[in-house]
């Protein structure tokens, strides 16, 4: 369980304020908002990559500050918006990086590799297992990055625009996988129409504040209108922006 209270951070003329937020296990959450509204900063704060000027972040009632880097990697996995890699590692090697937090445990090396193989299978990457990073297309790279994040086997996943390069088929495939996970998943996206069938909770950001925190039934045009500042109409349960 993730709990956030009274978090405040100010940097580069941008401030993010989070009053009180609670995320229960297994919940699927979408973060929405225009560019620069605070979604990525939210991820940086809850992962501890950025330190807030004040506020409290706890995982299962334990403060983030008291959890060491190595332990954090067993609680949450984070896929940043710009996942980036130098040198031509193979797909298998990259996905296997996700096993790093468990490397010191005396779980046999082969068992670790089997886990990586399973994740590759799950994301339909097995046939490109030995391909190198530079040979992959943008979408394939993104799926490899998602596989690496999943392979960390953490109870919490943070995904920052994980599907920005994926075609619609793979977006749906990934969302179906995510929907079935026994994990708390928080992801940011711009595609409300696609995401709304797969998540339980929608958090709207506006200028570093939380504008609304809704469930699927509460979703409405007004919120989208004030989030994106474009006219929105609802047609057949789809939101049309014009």
């Amino acid at each position: 369980m993730l709990y956030i209270e009274d978090v405040y951070i100010e940097r580069n003329e941008f401030t993010l304020k989070l009053e009180q937020l609670q995320f229960s296990d297994n919940c699927k959450v979408a973060l929405l908002g225009e560019n620069g509204s605070g979604k990525t900063t939210f991820f940086s704060i809850v992962t501890g990559l950025l330190k807030a000027q004040r506020g409290l972040i706890t995982y299962n009632k334990k403060s983030l500050m008291d959890i060491k880097t190595h332990e954090r990697a067993k609680i949450f996995a984070y896929l940043p918006q710009f996942f980036h890699l130098i040198f031509n590692f193979t797909v298998f090697e990259i996905v296997h990086f996700g096993r790093f937090p468990f490397y010191n445990k005396r779980l046999g090396n082969n068992q670790q590799k089997e886990k990586t193989d399973k994740v590759l299978e799950l994301l339909n990457l097995t046939k490109m297992k030995f391909k190198r990073w530079s040979e992959l297309s943008g979408g394939e790279k993104q799926r490899v990055a998602i596989a690496k994040t999943l392979n960390q086997e953490t109870p919490i996943l943070y995904l920052d625009e994980p599907f920005s390069m994926l075609d619609i088929k793979h977006q749906i495939d990934c969302l179906k996988i995510i929907q079935c996970l026994n994990k708390l998943v928080i992801l940011s996206t711009h595609n409300i129409n696609l995401i709304k069938n797969y998540v339980d909770r929608f958090i709207f950001f506006k200028n570093g504040n939380i504008l609304a925190d809704l469930n699927i039934n509460e979703l409405n045009e007004e919120v989208l209108n004030s989030t994106y500042e474009v006219p929105v109409k609802r047609i057949n349960n789809y939101f049309m922006f014009s």
């Binding site: 992962t47 880097t69 590692f89």
Partner: peptide, 20 residues
């Protein structure tokens, strides 16, 4: 060597993968 491999990832990913 294993930590060094992880360093080839971007900073945010490397840290959240558990490398100091």
């Amino acid at each position: 060597h294993y930590s060094l491999d992880i360093l080839s990832l971007d900073e945010a990913t490397a840290i959240t993968t558990g490398v100091n």
